[in-house]
Simulated assay, not measured.
Amino acid sequence: MIRSMTGFGRGSVDNPKGSFVVEIKTVNHRYCDLNIRMPKSFMPIEDRMRKLVQKSVKRGKVDIFITQGNYENKNVTAVLDQGLADSYVKCLKELKERYNIKESISLGLISKFPDIITVKQTEENLDEIWDILEPAFNEAIHMLLNMREKEGIKLKNNVILKCNSIKKSLEGIDDKSDIIVEEFRCKLNNRLKDLINDNELDETRIAMEVAIFADKSCIDEEIVRLSSHIIQFKDTLELDEPVGRKLDFILQEMNREANTIASKSTNLEITKLTLNIKNEIEKIREQIQNIE
């Protein structure tokens, strides 16, 4: 199924052991460029997150935001450095006696000294965290893929319409291609008559010139190849895999054939139809830049 590279997904989980929100935003990019913003403590399980997302997202710039909700953190404790506190109290008593200070030594004063009380965080059970976080990831990915698929359907329908327009213009070129040589023969014949007073023309020479022109201006092969590329392009749209790069390559070949037809054309109507084809190809190129 065709997927757009633009999408958004959100998943959340509320668990007594942890509350999390996972948001995934994607835009078009040539490769899969994945960036994760998360609490630093989750860095050891970043690889799991990447592998989970990359199973479903093959191309695009992917930004992932993980928000950790407020919950009781049993892994954080306050630790008293009793030896350091004793040393501070001893120093304060010596200062008090030496300088005859009447002010009492208070708990508030002692607790303000650095490193008396420190916060210690024990290592979290990352497997347990991942078990809680993974369902939120899956929910976000599911929403993201749904949005990308809906956008992909719109892109596919739009591109098919443009392919049909190209095919119609190509059929018009094919109908007119047969008269190009005859037009040239008539123009050459009339021009020579104007140049030669007695109107005696060398039919063999004219036939030779017409044959040379016909060989140079023949666009039958280009018409056949461009028709084949259109069919291949449509068939590729039906593949159940990422096809953005393949579509881009086929489109380059379509544009190559259109340029060749334009360079060989001496007929105004064929030139106009070729310009229509090139215009539609450029519109398709803009669209497929956002196809995965």
Score class of each variant (00 low, 15 high):
Glu221Phe: 08
Ile223Trp: 07
Ser227Gln: 15
Glu200Tyr: 04
Asp240Pro: 05
Met208Ala: 11
Lys216Met: 09
Lys234Pro: 00
Leu237Phe: 08
Ile219Asn: 03
Met208Thr: 14
Asp215Lys: 09
Pro242Phe: 09
Ile212Ser: 04
Ile212Gln: 00
Glu200Phe: 04
Asp215Thr: 04
Ile223Cys: 12
Asp240Asn: 08
Asp215His: 06
Leu226Asp: 14
Ser228Asp: 10
Glu238Leu: 12
Cys218Pro: 04
Ala214Glu: 06
Glu200Ile: 14
Ala214Ile: 02
Asp220Pro: 06
Met208Tyr: 14
Lys216Phe: 07
Met208Gln: 15
Cys218Asp: 15
Thr204Trp: 10
Phe233Glu: 10
Glu222Lys: 06
Leu201Glu: 05
Met208His: 11
Glu209Val: 00
Glu238Tyr: 07
His229Cys: 11
Lys216Ser: 08
Ser227Tyr: 13
Asp240Phe: 04
Thr236Val: 07
Ser217Pro: 00
Lys216Cys: 04
Ile206Asn: 04
Thr204Phe: 10
Ile230Arg: 00
His229Ser: 11
Lys234Asn: 11
Gln232Arg: 14
Asp235Gln: 15
Ile230Tyr: 02
Ile206Pro: 05
Gly244Ala: 05
Cys218Ile: 03
Ala207Lys: 07
Asp215Cys: 03
Ser217Asn: 01
Glu221Arg: 09
Met208Asp: 12
Thr236Cys: 13
Leu226His: 14
Ala207Arg: 05
Ala211Leu: 01
Glu222Cys: 13
Glu238Gly: 09
Val210Leu: 02
Asp220Met: 08
Leu226Pro: 14
Glu209Gly: 00
Asp235Phe: 06
Ile219Asp: 03
Glu221Asn: 14
Leu237His: 09
Met208Lys: 12
Asn199Pro: 06
Gly244Trp: 03
Ala214Leu: 05
Asp240His: 08
Gln232Ala: 15
His229Pro: 08
Ile206Gly: 05
Glu221Gln: 11
Ser227Leu: 14
Gly244His: 02
Asp220Glu: 12
Gly244Ile: 05
Glu203Gln: 05
Gln232Met: 14
Cys218Ser: 15
Asp235Lys: 12
Ile223Gly: 06
Arg205Ile: 00
Glu209Cys: 03
Ile231His: 11
Gln232Gly: 12
Cys218Glu: 14
His229Thr: 11
Gln232Glu: 13
Asp240Gly: 08
Ile212Met: 04
Leu237Lys: 08
Asp220Thr: 13
Glu222Arg: 07
Val210Gly: 13
Asp240Tyr: 04
Glu238Thr: 13
Thr236Trp: 08
His229Gln: 13
Leu239Thr: 11
Asp202Val: 00
Val243Tyr: 04
Glu221Val: 15
Val243Asn: 09
Asp215Leu: 01
Lys234His: 05
Ser228Ala: 15
Ala214Asp: 09
Asp220Ala: 13
Leu239Asp: 12
Phe213His: 07
Ala211Gly: 01
Ser217His: 02
Val243Lys: 06
Pro242Cys: 02
Glu200Arg: 15
Lys216Ala: 02
Val210Trp: 01
Glu200Asn: 09
Ala207Glu: 05
Ala207Asp: 10
Glu203Asp: 07
Glu241Ala: 03
Ile212Tyr: 08
Val243Thr: 12
Leu237Ala: 11
Ile212Val: 07
Val224Gln: 10
Asp215Ile: 04
Val210Gln: 02
Asp235Ala: 13
Glu222His: 04
Asp240Met: 05
Leu226Ile: 15
Thr204Val: 10
Phe213Gly: 11
Asp202Ser: 02
Glu209Met: 03
Asp215Glu: 15
Gly244Met: 07
Arg225Gly: 02
